[in-house]
Each structure stands twice: as C-alpha cells, then as structure tokens.
Amino acid sequence: MKINVNAKDYTLDVPDNTSLLDALRVHLNLTGTKYGCGEAACGACKVLIDGHATPSCITPVASVQHKAIITIEGLEKDGKLHPIQQAFLDEDAFQCAYCAPGMIMAAVALKEKNPKPTRQEIVEAMQGNICRCCTYPRIINAISKA
C-alpha cells in the first residue's frame, strides 16, 4: 500500500490492519510519534491526517491511503521549528516531554482552524491529550502565544 507522510510517498508491505503508529515508528523509522495507551485516550500518538489531529494507535494504515499525513517530524521547515513547537519551548511547556508530539499536533490542528482561540477553546481542543507531568498551564500559554 502507498501512503504519503510529511509530503513524501512511501510504499509499505504490511497487513491492512497494521496501525498507522506501527507503520510510522517501525516501518518508516519516524519515532517522534509516541505510543501511550494504545486506546486513543492519551493523545501521545496524534498525527495530522488531512489537517485533523488523529490518534495513530487506532487508525489502520489502510484507511489513510490517499491522505496527507503529517507527523511531528514534518512540522520543521528549512531548519526552522513550527511556531507551535517554538512556543512550547519558549513557554517551558515540556517536562518529561513524552506527550509533547501529540500535544503539538493537536495544537497545530486547532490553530490552523482557529488562529486566535480563546482559553476555553484551547482547553476544549486539547481534551484527549494527557500530560502526566501536569504542565497544562504552560501548554495553554504556549498555544495562546503561538
């Protein structure tokens, strides 16, 4: 099957029910997307699929053929971080940073739809993304300031 990840086409020889997360991490060696719960409850594995933040752990790779997939690795352009990535650094939103890729991908999807979200809109959009270090205030600040 063929998939497009970070504007590159790849051909994979995997069963249709292989999770997109496994395809990315194991078969394409794109390890920025993290495995968290395996049930789409924590948000660590979110990627953008046609602009929508989507949990890759429960998404069959066969379902994303002919769609644009963006991972955390695909946000950086010409050696420059995406504004959301930079804002997370500037606001010291990371502690252990395990949740960071999924948080950033959810924030990018939000800001692409709504460039100036209110605090409440940020909180609502980030539901389903868990930070076990509880840096939520800094995460919200980073998204607000990006």
Rank of each mutant, 00 (worst) to 15 (best):
K2R: 06
N4H: 09
N4R: 08
V5Y: 11
D9S: 09
V14C: 04
D16N: 12
D16F: 09
N17P: 02
T18H: 05
T18Q: 10
L20Q: 07
L21R: 06
A23P: 06
L24Y: 04
R25E: 02
V26R: 06
V26C: 02
N29K: 03
N29G: 00
N29T: 01
L30V: 06
G43A: 10
K46N: 14
V47G: 14
V47F: 09
L48C: 04
I49P: 06
G51P: 06
S56M: 08
C57P: 11
S63L: 08
S63N: 04
V64C: 08
V64L: 06
H66W: 00
H66S: 03
T71F: 11
T71S: 10
I72V: 15
G74A: 08
G74N: 04
L75K: 09
L75Q: 12
D78H: 14
D78I: 05
D78K: 13
G79K: 04
G79P: 12
L81N: 15
L81T: 15
A87D: 08
L89G: 07
D92K: 07
D92T: 01
F94I: 07
F94N: 09
C96P: 13
Y98M: 08
C99Y: 05
P101Q: 14
G102M: 10
V108N: 13
L110Y: 07
P117F: 12
T118D: 04
R119E: 15
R119I: 11
M126V: 01
M126I: 01
Q127H: 01
Q127G: 00
N129M: 02
I130W: 00
C131F: 01
C133H: 07
C134R: 07
Y136K: 02
P137R: 09
P137K: 10
P137M: 13
R138E: 05
I139H: 01
S144M: 03
